[in-house]
Design a protein around this nucleic acid. Structure first.
Length: 577
RNA sequence: GCCCUCAUAGUUAAACGGAUAUAACGGAGGUUUCCUAAACCUUUGUUGGUGGUUCGAUUCCGCCUGGGGGUGCCA
């Protein structure tokens, strides 16, 4: 698709160069980064502030803006160029932008917004990574949906992707679980309801351990046995793992999320000795209070604990082994970890250790933190039984949606299917609409509120557009973008919508580069709002054939872009609702 | 103590260092003989404090206040 922003930057660069006789020293790239989109569309479609040129040109900015405006106004790219104070305000040709955009959406279809920027490079996204034998709760939703969206974003901008669910299937917690199971457990209960039962053992363990601290020692000992491959412990552990995965997959299926690899922490168990040896050989390992550490004091961090005093491994050791393994196996361009910001220090230490080991690719390992989810009662705590199960949240959202459908919609065919798409979409959408790094408090009535800038709003807009297209009776495949009279799409409302569609591919790229799916979420909401306004202000299915075709092409493009955007968020777009 | 992070209408959130800080929810009022009213329109109201850098700061830097997280044998 023709890149208008770049074209404008080129024109501006030439104008500035001419006016300053080369003294401004701004490249087209510099200029491009200065171009803005005015908040108030009546000012222009693009704007260029001239403050910075004042020094080089020794003139006041407003005069420069006037000169620049005069210099570029002849270009056919623009309908109008004018200066307001220090700004050069540019209006692009509406019909031309409509043609460029709608032709592109039509021909690219489901791949509108895609590009090949990452061609030949591999990006790993590690996300979700729940702990085995523990509930899949509301605290896991963010890593799961953000990671899933990042994978889709990187896929869309052309990278080869590898999705890894780094299961928390190892560590002292399994020592605890095994101890608890042997003391109070019962096979039948576990089979019937694995997670809830195992969780109850885990909770009981922590209650008992307050009175009997020796349980903690037992747990560590059992984990050490597990790590040494003692068959009885391994067998129990495998069983817990299988039962848990079955439950996790049920939730993943509901959300339409999948993985390329489930290589969790245990997968790296046999790769640990080599890491230890390497750390030792490189002179990084130090003994301290019986444990093996890497001292990071000179980098302002507490030491990284590599092995415990009983010799068993720790989280960071496994993450080091994992990074090395992944570099060897996938030769990644980037290795992304979608993990809560609570673990900032852990990832900082881990990255530093990789650096100290001499791996220059440590810089390509990137922690993507996100804010904490808490409940109104306080922090989520598995041990204290203070959890909200993700599956319950999804089910309630679906139920609520079903009720809404029953009360609003006469046409209830596929009501169950629609309720699933909309209810689950609503929950996912909400998680993806706020900037990653913000903490938030889970509230039932907020999750179940579908008014305003929500998933259902966007999905409804999509269904509405779909409905218009159905009613048109026109075979869309036969709409030829070359044969459309775009002058029918030059109203303010139509043009606002077109501009948003035109910008969509840049938004996708921006979201990927910032690791920020919410950028897409917000843009999709903007498109939905613009379409609803267009739908309301203008009649699409008019008797005038040329007008109708132009408006239908725009409607189809809006629908397609909303659909593509939702897809990048992992959310489905219903044809009817 | 030290480190990280957050602070914007009543609430939840937006804003590459740029023009009059933008939406949604809530409140008040309105729109349907017309393509889905899960929609649209009108109205109400905001940058924690203090210095600095800058032509220009919600944005960058210093300090203060307040919330959250982390800080050696959990992950």
């Amino acid at each position: 698709m023709k890149n208008i922003r770049k074209e404008i930057a080129q024109l501006l660069a030439e104008a500035v160069d001419k006016l300053s006789q080369g003294a401004a020293g701004l490249s087209a790239e510099d200029i491009e980064s200065l171009i803005e989109i005015p908040g108030d569309a009546s000012l222009g479609d693009y704007a260029f502030p001239c403050f910075r040129l004042a020094k080089a040109l020794r003139k006041n900015p407003a005069m420069i803006a006037a000169d620049v405006a005069a210099e570029i106004s002849e270009s056919p790219v623009f309908e109008k160029v004018q200066n307001v104070n220090a700004y050069v305000n540019m209006f692009v040709s509406k019909a031309e932008l409509a043609q460029i955009t709608l032709s592109e959406v039509k021909s690219a279809g489901d791949r509108f917004g895609f590009c090949n920027k990452g061609e030949g490079k591999t990006v790993i996204v590690e996300y979700s990574s729940p702990n085995i034998a523990k509930p899949f709760h509301i605290g896991h939703i963010r890593t799961t949906v953000i990671g899933n969206s990042l994978y889709k974003l990187y896929d869309a901008v052309g990278y080869k992707t590898v999705r890894i669910n780094h299961l928390g299937d190892y560590g002292t917690q399994f020592g605890k679980m095994i101890v608890a199971y042997r003391l109070w457990g019962n096979e039948e209960d576990v089979r019937r309801e694995p997670i809830k039962t195992l969780l109850s053992y885990y909770v009981k363990f922590h209650e008992e351990a307050k009175e009997h601290p020796e349980l903690e020692d037992q747990a560590r000992e059992i984990f050490a046995r597990l790590e040494h491959g003692e068959p009885e412990e391994v067998k129990l552990w495998q069983w817990f793992r299988e039962e848990s995965l079955r439950e996790f997959n049920r939730v993943y299926d509901m959300m339409g999320i999948s993985f390329d690899s489930y290589a969790g922490e245990s997968f790296y168990s046999d790769k640990m000795p080599a890491v230890l040896q390497e750390l030792k050989d490189k002179g990084l390992l130090k003994e301290s209070q019986g444990a093996q550490i890497v001292d990071l004091e000179e980098y302002g961090m507490s030491p990284a604990l590599i092995t415990k005093s009983d010799g068993s491994s720790l989280y960071i050791t496994r993450d080091i082994a994992a990074a090395i393994y992944r570099k060897k196996t996938y030769d990644f361009y980037k290795n992304l970890y979608v993990v809560a910001s609570q673990q900032n220090l852990h990832f900082a230490q881990w990255k530093k250790v990789l650096e100290l080991m001499g791996y220059e690719w440590a810089r390509d390992c990137i922690h993507i933190p996100f804010g904490m989810v808490s409940l109104e009662e306080g922090t989520l705590s598995t041990r204290k039984g203070r959890v909200v199960f993700l599956e319950d949240v999804l089910n309630k959202a679906v139920e609520k949606t079903k009720e809404i459908i029953m009360e609003k919609n006469v046409n209830t065919e596929n009501a169950d299917e629609t309720a699933k798409i909309v209810g689950i979409g609503a929950v996912m959408f909400q998680e993806l609409s706020v900037t990653r790094n913000k903490d938030y408090t889970f509230k039932w009535d907020e999750v179940l509120n579908f008014d305003g800038e929500t998933g259902p709003y966007v999905q409804y807009t999509h269904a509405r557009a779909a409905s218009v297209l159905r009613n048109s009776g026109i075979d869309l495949a036969k709409l030829d973008p070359e044969a459309i009279d775009y002058s029918w799409l030059t109203s303010d409302t139509a043009f606002e919508l077109i501009k948003l569609l035109y910008r969509y591919p840049d938004v996708v790229l921006d979201a990927a580069e910032k690791y920020e799916p919410s950028v897409v979420t917000r843009h999709v909401v903007d498109i939905a709002q613009a379409f609803n306004k267009f739908y309301h202000d203008e009649h699409i299915l008019t008797d005038n054939e040329a007008e109708k075709q132009a408006k239908l092409l725009l409607t189809a493009a809006a629908k397609q872009t909303i659909r593509n955007g939702l897809d990048l968020l992992g959310i489905k777009a219903p044809e009817k609702m």
